[in-house]
Computed example of a mutant assay.
Amino acid sequence: MPYIKIEVTREGITREQKNELIKGATDLMVRVLHKDPAATFVVIEEVDTDNWGWGGESITDIRARQR
């Protein structure tokens, strides 16, 4: 029973995009590992940009500098 966790920053990901990620991740498990799609779980967690850092800075600060 595969469990797939996808973490993204909370920056406007749509319901349609989430559905596509869920379907794509499930299809990948079916194709590569021959897993049953009914037993494959996909969780998408949206993380606030204040809580996601890269290179010693929060994504919030990086995005602000890029504007």
Results as ranks from 00 to 15, higher is better:
residue 44 I to L: 13
residue 57 E to L: 11
residue 44 I to E: 06
residue 8 V to Q: 03
residue 32 V to Q: 02
residue 57 E to M: 10
residue 33 L to S: 11
residue 51 N to G: 04
residue 5 K to R: 14
residue 24 G to D: 08
residue 45 E to C: 09
residue 55 G to E: 07
residue 57 E to W: 02
residue 36 D to M: 08
residue 21 L to P: 00
residue 24 G to S: 10
residue 17 Q to K: 15
residue 26 T to E: 03
residue 41 F to Q: 10
residue 53 G to D: 01
residue 66 Q to V: 09
residue 19 N to I: 06
residue 55 G to M: 02
residue 6 I to G: 01
residue 53 G to F: 07
residue 25 A to D: 04
residue 33 L to H: 14
residue 52 W to V: 06
residue 26 T to P: 04
residue 53 G to Q: 09
residue 22 I to F: 03
residue 55 G to W: 11
residue 33 L to N: 13
residue 30 V to E: 02
residue 63 R to H: 10
residue 37 P to Q: 06
residue 42 V to H: 04
residue 5 K to V: 15
residue 58 S to F: 13
residue 38 A to M: 12
residue 59 I to D: 00
residue 4 I to D: 00
residue 20 E to G: 07
residue 40 T to G: 02
residue 31 R to D: 15
residue 38 A to F: 09
residue 64 A to S: 05
residue 17 Q to C: 07
residue 61 D to E: 14
residue 11 E to Y: 10
residue 19 N to A: 15
residue 5 K to Q: 12
residue 12 G to T: 04
residue 58 S to G: 05
residue 29 M to D: 03
residue 8 V to F: 07
residue 13 I to N: 06
residue 65 R to H: 05
residue 2 P to E: 01
residue 42 V to C: 03
residue 39 A to E: 11
residue 3 Y to Q: 08
residue 2 P to D: 00
residue 45 E to K: 12
residue 36 D to Q: 09
residue 58 S to T: 15
residue 67 R to K: 14
residue 30 V to S: 06
residue 66 Q to S: 14
residue 63 R to Y: 03
residue 46 E to R: 07
residue 5 K to M: 12
residue 25 A to C: 08
residue 49 T to L: 08
residue 64 A to R: 15
residue 36 D to P: 01
residue 7 E to G: 11
residue 25 A to G: 03
residue 3 Y to H: 13
residue 15 R to C: 09
residue 12 G to P: 08
residue 25 A to P: 00
residue 49 T to Q: 09
residue 21 L to N: 05
residue 27 D to N: 14
residue 59 I to S: 07
residue 1 M to I: 08
residue 26 T to I: 00
residue 42 V to F: 02
residue 44 I to K: 02
residue 18 K to T: 06
residue 53 G to E: 07
residue 54 W to L: 10
residue 39 A to Y: 08
residue 3 Y to I: 13
residue 13 I to R: 15
residue 50 D to V: 08
residue 48 D to F: 05
residue 51 N to F: 13
residue 45 E to Y: 05
residue 59 I to Y: 02
residue 39 A to L: 06
residue 27 D to V: 12
residue 13 I to L: 15
residue 6 I to E: 06
residue 53 G to I: 01
residue 64 A to N: 08
residue 51 N to T: 10
residue 51 N to S: 13
residue 2 P to M: 06
residue 43 V to D: 00
residue 65 R to F: 02
residue 51 N to Q: 13
residue 16 E to M: 06
residue 24 G to E: 02
residue 11 E to W: 03
residue 3 Y to G: 03
residue 11 E to L: 12
residue 58 S to Q: 11
residue 25 A to E: 02
